[in-house]
Design a protein around this nucleic acid. Sequence first.
RNA 1: GGAGAGGUGCCGGAGUGGUUGAUCGGGGCGGUCUCGAAAACCGUUGUAGCUUUCGGGCUACCGUGGGUUCGAAUCCCACCUUCUCCGCCA
Length: 409
Amino acid sequence: MLDINLIRENQEFVIKALQDRQMDPAPVTRMVELDQLRRTTLAEVEKLKAERNTASKEIGRTKDAAERTAKIEAMRVVGDQITALDQQVKEVETELNSLALNVPNIPDGRVPYGTGEDENVVIRHEGVVAEPKFDTIPHWDLGTALGIIDFERGAKLTGSRFYVLNDGAARLQRALISFMLDTHIRNGYHERYTPYMVKSDALYGAGQLPKFRDNLYRDAEEDLWFIPTAEVPLTGLYMNEIIEEEELPLRLTSYTACFRREKMSAGRDVRGIKRGHQFDKVELYCCLPEKSDEEHQRIMHSAEEVCRKLELPYRIIQQCTGDLGFSAQLCYDIEVWAPGCKEWLEVSSISNDGDFQARRGAIRYREKESGKPRFLHTLNGSGLGLPRTLIAVMKLTNNRTGRSSFRKR
RNA sequence: GGAGAGGUGCCGGAGUGGUUGAUCGGGGCGGUCUCGAAAACCGUUGUAGCUUUCGGGCUACCGUGGGUUCGAAUCCCACCUUCUCCGCCA
């Protein structure tokens, strides 16, 4: 959520930001109109309320019955006006709010302009992508051949894009989760185990709703939604709270399953375990008062450390304006090389959201000096996504030993 | 799932229709006293919005959302949530 004052005072700037993101800026103009209407109507109705409050107190003191009745009659008219104006304010606010919830964060000045994913910028390479000494096999073939990934039974149980990990693959994933969490904990992050289902509030706060509704699974009868990422419960953790400045920064890490409904056509991009509807992820999260650049790097380091220790060659991508995530103002992706399917796989996306989520979820801290509550900055990044790490590690293991270390069954 | 009782400010806890944004106690902060501290005493202590001649002024908020009323923390309805007992269960 953007500050309405920012939109009012820097309308052109906000419009430019939306255009850079390849989005329609029309709602911004409408928001400015509504904001103006809201304030004039509010001034009007509040004046009437002040009048009524004074009169009501007088009525309380009035002993004379006739006089009392006269005053009540007079106030009844004012009461009706208030009801009508309150209704108007509410309608305006409802429209304003629904527009505001769909306006993305403003890209940081350093985000390169680009119309979409293809214009993201590779800013750094780490590790060497070795030429394979023999033909490589994509993980869906390797996993099936080794008997450690069972796509057929996954589909039988749940449907397409669900799978079962057997023996070594299941065990390897579990070990990777522990390894990732332990790495982050050593780097100062505190582990949290959260619910995998949340109320819609948490999804609005994190910026998943209302825009990405179609990508979410939910309980049909209750207001309960499966999390698409641990970022959602971690952001929700401190919603509607005021944190003391001494307690910041809050550095959190969490392992969760993630559920994404996203309908994609079957084909190469969804082949294997790369893009399942359910996947595991270890998440990194931080909230702190402003000055979030340094913290962004800190999250990067912890995520990169996992790649380095696993000896996975990787590269850092900077998202351009056209690809930048909805809530993010600055975002880097980490992609590891998967020799099996010969492609770079995004295993992490590390965003600085500024105060965007904090405004949506009313996450604040009390500034020590002034004693005033302020919005804080939130950052999040994967550290890392499990299935894709598994893909890269599986191949690596096979490469190094020349044979599988997994027992076929 | 059934039965019952609650949700009030940083905390505890009053308050069942009219100067109650909220008695009181504790805590915090400022001060007096003191060599210093404790004690005692005095003062102060929420969030948000609108507006301002920047001194302020006004409005809203007592779990959330509706309703009744000239007027609601107080009455009515729905929901969320906590606790106790019973049932069920890893």
